[in-house]
Design a protein around this nucleic acid. Structure first.
Length: 466
RNA sequence: GACCCCAUCGUCUAGCCUGGCCUAGGACGUCGGCCUUUCACGCCGGUAACGGGGGUUCAAAUCCCCCUGGGGUCGCCA
């Protein structure tokens, strides 16, 4: 069997939203899973609405998600000559004709059809008129009059529609430019695309496009239409409720692998397995398990995925991402400390932003620590600070700073004072981290290091004591 | 309006093609418990679904028909 070729063909009229990203992901997965090629084509024929910013945004987003395409990027706008060449062939072979019906006339036809309880469409007035380029009109495709067109969708199965339902669609506008449906067919053919995975909203175009392939005697690719993604209100995801750019998810601190995994599992399944690495995704992807019904986007589940990825990530990698986010350099020692802190923080973070916030106290000097008001009020009073003062002396005596030694020291301390562990733990925690919430105390102190721990205790005692 | 598509827990889904192993499984969420120095993580347990009606069959979530509900498309936009 020959190599399969898939493509993603966005129109650059805005950022790449989550729905488009998922479609791209599926196409990418299909190609990668079969050792095929994944191409990128920018459908920029609508010059008024296409922007360079949008093109860049789409490319950035795909790169972030790890969807690498093969070969050069195709720009549909650069292919107008070829499109017109095909249109001319279609006219020459009798599959297309010139039409100079005015917009008003066509509108009237549609009204008439609609009034008769039929599908509004052009009635074929100019079909046999034998008009030529001099008419200054458009070129229409001669849709077969009888019979039906059917195809088997990769995700929805076989479906068909009567040719009578179809319009004689316009291939070339009166300004000489090719239309979308023509351009797509020509490009997909020229690019050697064998499998077209695209949004649900294109199913009806498929019935129009297949006859074009046939008229040109071209191989018809396989089509698969993936259902759209809905908002929590079950309405199509719109800018109003959560149709965010995939780059927004980066800003929220999600790891690209987590987003890709979530997206893949939204509308596709591999048994009961939720977490799939990129390799597993590639290995197991198949259009057979694509769902044929729409799915609701659930940020809570994305967060869960993300949390899983945070937990299994490499500390080094996380630190690197954190520093990118902070856009700062850290002194080597602090960086090492931060890296040591990662395993403590990972189970507590849903995404990089969480991690960033929670790791802050590990890398700043005591003076820069932000103490939570309520935590201080509750745990750092005259009594507890004097306790901390005493503890300071004990901790100072530890020769070999490790978790066991710290634990021993603290336990001995409370035993001596006949205190509950909690009575000491929370004040220490607040003094050292600024918050009542933190990883385990011993491991926190250990990672912080003796010097920092002592510095912080001292600082807190001075600041909040008396 | 016409045409096309879709329909399992609140959500993502397994199962449907090749009926019985489904008193419908997993995951997120949620609720309860355990763990515990806080917060998480983790663990254990509970909650909750085959849209309705007809068939076919010994047997239907699975096959067929109808209904209902939802969505998509009907552009010299893509």
């Amino acid at each position: 069997m020959s190599q399969i070729v898939t493509r993603f063909a966005p129109s650059p009229t805005g950022f790449l939203h989550i729905g488009g990203a998922r479609t791209a992901l599926f196409s990418w997965l299909l190609a990668r899973s079969q050792g095929g090629r994944f191409l990128l084509r920018i459908e920029d024929t609508d010059r008024k609405r296409s922007t360079q910013e949008a093109i860049d945004a789409i490319i950035d987003a795909m790169q972030w998600l790890g969807l690498d395409h093969d070969g050069e990027i195709y720009f549909q706008s650069k292919r107008a000559l070829r499109h017109n060449e095909v249109i001319d062939q279609l006219i020459a072979s009798g599959h297309a004709y010139w039409c100079n019906c005015s917009k008003e006339q066509v509108d009237a036809m549609r009204e008439t059809a609609k009034a008769a309880g039929k599908k509004p469409k052009y009635d074929g007035t100019c079909r046999e008129k034998g008009l030529d380029a001099s008419c200054g009109g458009v070129v229409r495709f001669k849709t077969p009059l009888v019979g039906m067109i059917s195809y088997t969708d990769l995700v929805k199965g076989t479906s068909s529609v009567h040719y009578q339902e179809l319009d004689d669609l316009i291939l070339r506008r009166s300004d000489g430019n090719p239309t979308y449906n023509l351009a797509v067919v020509v490009d997909d053919h020229d690019m050697g695309v064998t499998h077209v995975l695209r949004g649900d909203d294109h199913v009806n175009n498929t019935f129009r496009q297949i006859p074009l392939y046939r008229a040109m005697n071209w191989d018809v690719p396989q089509f698969g239409h993936v259902p759209m993604i809905l908002g929590s209100d079950k309405k199509k995801l719109s800018k109003r409720h959560g149709a965010l750019s995939v780059m927004e998810y980066e800003k929220m601190g999600f790891l690209p692998d987590a987003v890709a995994n979530y997206l893949a599992r939204l509308g596709w399944s591999h048994g009961d397995q939720e977490i799939l690495s990129r390799e597993e995704l590639i290995q197991n992807f198949s259009t057979q398990h694509l769902s044929s019904s729409p799915s609701v986007f659930d940020i809570q589940k994305l967060e869960w995925f993300s949390g899983q990825y945070m937990q299994s990530a490499e500390p080094k990698f996380l630190v690197q991402e954190l520093l990118k986010l902070l856009a700062i350099e850290l002194p080597p020692l602090t960086k090492t400390r931060l890296e040591a802190a990662m395993p403590l923080l990972q189970p507590r973070a849903k995404h990089l932003i969480d991690l960033l916030e929670q790791s802050r106290f590990f890398i700043v000097e005591p003076e820069a620590l932000s103490y939570e008001q309520s935590a201080v009020e509750k745990f750092l009073n005259a009594q507890s600070t004097s306790l901390l003062n005493e503890l300071f002396l004990q901790l100072q005596n530890i020769k070999d700073w490790n978790e066991e030694a710290i634990e021993q020291c603290l336990r001995a301390f409370i035993e001596n004072k006949d205190l509950k562990f909690k009575a000491l733990a929370q004040p220490v925690r607040v003094a050292v981290t600024g918050s009542t919430k933190s990883p385990g105390l011993f491991e926190t102190l250990f990672v912080l290091g003796q010097e920092q721990t002592l510095k912080r205790l001292k600082y807190a005692v001075q600041k909040f004591g008396e």
